[in-house]
């Protein structure tokens, strides 16, 4: 565990909390892509099955349970509690265009052809593209509430910190997880365009991020 990894996990936790609190307090999920949240819940479900097979550390176990609980709570709020506020006509990204290649790739490229490994690989590839419906929705509506942009900022920061974590681990313990690193770099690249808009618009105090 290094400072980049810890900061990354905290940033990830902050992002999830920001979104959950925003939906709960505003009693609305307008502008939020429910599809992305379902994909994230699927990412955690397929990745954290090892909760039942290995014990790595109390921190590892607790964080996995917290991430699972909060992502399902977010999906519940969007599709059950506040479903009448769900912006379905703008959340139209075809997730099958993500799932089919991700499923195919996880069968082709994995460390071992075992259910747990393939599901883990699936979750790694899926996480890389899970934010696409949300970014697509923002481009479609042309705007995003500032809270939503803060959510995306911390999500992108978590990915950037994980890359720093991998650089650190490579130099200090010769650690290199090819599937996680390649997929993580691709995922982080998707946030670059958003980061530019976030810095140039949201941090200038705009109430909403209006796309050009």
């Amino acid at each position: 565990m290094n400072v980049f990894r810890l900061a990354g996990d905290v940033s990830h936790l902050v992002a999830i909390i920001i979104l959950l609190v925003k939906i709960w307090r505003s009693k609305s999920c307008a502008g939020i892509s429910g599809k992305s949240q379902v994909l994230f819940a699927l990412v955690f479900t397929t990745r954290y099955l090892d909760l039942f097979t290995v014990f790595i550390s109390a921190y590892n176990t607790i964080m996995k349970v917290v991430f699972l609980a909060m992502s399902y709570a977010t999906v519940y709020l969007i599709y059950m509690r506040f479903r009448n506020m769900y912006d379905s006509e703008n959340d139209t990204f075809r997730v099958e265009f993500l799932l089919v290649p991700v499923i195919g790739l996880s069968f082709l490229e994995n460390y071992a052809f075992t259910p747990l490994e393939i599901l883990w690989t699936f979750s790694i590839f899926l996480e890389a593209v899970a934010i696409m419906p949300q970014l697509f929705m923002i481009t479609k509506t042309g705007e995003a509430e500032s809270i939503t942009t803060h959510y995306l900022f911390f999500l992108g920061l978590y990915r950037a910190l994980y890359i720093a974590n991998w650089v650190w681990r490579y130099h200090t313990e010769e650690f290199f997880d090819q599937i996680a690193v390649v997929s993580g770099v691709v995922q982080t690249i998707f946030y670059c365009d958003f980061f530019y808009l976030y810095v140039t618009r949201v941090l200038r105090g705009k109430a909403k991020m209006i796309l050009p």
């Binding site: 790595i56 590892n60 460390y111 883990w120 994980y162 974590n165 997880d177 996680a180």
Partner: peptide, 10 residues
């Protein structure tokens, strides 16, 4: 397939 290394990251 490489040896499956310990997955300690989230």
């Amino acid at each position: 397939t490489e040896d499956v290394q310990q997955k300690d990251e989230l």
